[in-house]
Simulated scan of single mutants.
Amino acid sequence: MNKARARKRPNASITTKAQSSIRLIAGQHRGRKLPVLSADGLRPTTDRVKETLFNWLMTDIQGSKCLDCFAGAGSLGFEAVSRHAESVTMLELNEAAAQQLKANQQLLKADNIDVINTNTLSYLATSKTAFDVVFVDPPFRQQLAQQTIDLLTQGWLAEHALVYVETETESPAPQVPANWQLIKEKTAGQVAYRLYQLT
């Protein structure tokens, strides 16, 4: 399935009949492949996009506290850990996908990963923790990116935090606060991806 992260439609069914994997590109776990549950309706994110993103983040990821809002297969979160992020919190609604994230965490012996099986929007409406890097890569065509951005502004972002947002190309760019500076932007196929920094 996935060279990057899995994404699900509502009520997507998970099957363990076949497995694919994600590959960590660089860092302490470079080349490591982690199993991913095959699931109907999961959207892959390509290695090409992931590599571009982490090139953008090259000088910022080490020692950072990261939040992966729609973890899916965990490709971005595990890549961040491999590149020496201080900690990564992974939010994932699908229970089977969350269990696979926890299993892969154990494979990497990464005790600085916290996997939470939860609805992201509900979680972000609770008590706040400031993160340095946030990944927002939700299921397409559900307006989740904009809702997530709106919630992140309510205490979830550290000073000068970086926020990665991935959306479908046919959608307009998300509306962001005036203090979010767009520093990088690209498209790849049906995906538009942007990196913002708080100023």
Rank of each mutant, 00 (worst) to 15 (best):
K8G: 09
R83N: 14
K65M: 12
L144R: 06
V176I: 13
P35L: 03
T167L: 13
D60W: 15
W180G: 00
N55W: 11
A98T: 01
G77T: 08
F135S: 01
L53D: 01
A18G: 12
G41Y: 00
V134M: 06
N117F: 07
I22G: 01
H160S: 04
V36G: 00
M1F: 07
Q143R: 13
V133Y: 06
M58H: 15
W156N: 06
P172F: 12
Q100C: 00
A12E: 11
A96F: 00
H84F: 14
D137Y: 04
L157E: 01
R5G: 08
A26H: 04
I113K: 01
L157I: 03
L37V: 04
V136N: 10
L151V: 05
D68N: 09
I22W: 01
F140P: 07
Q99F: 01
S122M: 14
I14C: 09
R7V: 05
A4M: 02
A103R: 14
T120C: 13
G74I: 02
Q197N: 07
Q197S: 10
L151N: 08
N55F: 10
L107E: 12
A188N: 09
R23Q: 09
L182H: 02
E79Q: 09
I113G: 01
Q28T: 12
R43V: 02
S20I: 03
A71I: 06
A73N: 03
A73S: 15
T148F: 01
T16M: 10
S64V: 11
K128W: 00
E185F: 15
I116P: 09
C66A: 11
P44I: 02
K186R: 15
L121H: 08
Q99P: 02
A73T: 06
R48C: 05
M1W: 05
D114T: 15
L195N: 02
A98E: 00
T59P: 13
S127T: 14
E170Q: 14
K17A: 13
Q175G: 11
K186S: 12
F131Y: 15
T52A: 12
G189C: 07
P139M: 12
K109V: 11
Q99K: 13
E168C: 12
E166S: 12
A110E: 05
N112E: 07
A39P: 00
A4V: 06
T167P: 03
E51W: 02
F54C: 10
I61M: 10
E51K: 10
P138A: 04
